[in-house]
């Protein structure tokens, strides 16, 4: 079972603000998901080489030739706020 602190930390990494009640609720759900995923740990993988992918492909590479991009107008079309040809968001202060 994840502690409330762990749940809060994970939520923080995802930039989610959770109330104490939500931490309770989601903490239980997240723990259940992790437990379920953990059933995989029961498998004996002693003889199986670690793998980074399940794709049966390798060296899929494109030649270095520039092609046309989207227009600025199209690129910005989904943005709720635009200024000077750029996406505008609330400033994040470090």
């Amino acid at each position: 079972m994840l502690t409330p602190e762990e749940v809060g930390h994970i939520a923080g990494l995802a930039r989610l603000g959770l109330s104490p009640e939500e931490i309770q609720t989601f903490g239980k759900q997240l723990s259940a998901i992790l437990d379920y995923a953990h059933t995989l740990a029961r498998l004996d993988t002693e003889q199986v080489a670690p793998t980074a992918t399940v794709l049966a492909l390798e060296n899929v590479l494109a030649p270095d030739r520039a092609e046309p991009s989207l227009s600025q107008e199209d690129a910005l079309a989904n943005s709720p706020q635009v200024q000077d040809g750029q996406f505008r968001v609330t400033a994040i202060m470090e």
């Binding site: 690129a75 200024q83 000077d84 750029q86 996406f87 505008r88 968001v89 609330t90 400033a91």
Partner: peptide
Amino acid sequence: LTHVGGSSLIDF
């Protein structure tokens, strides 16, 4: 990112 007032402008 360019910071302008309370906003950040993004050029990708």
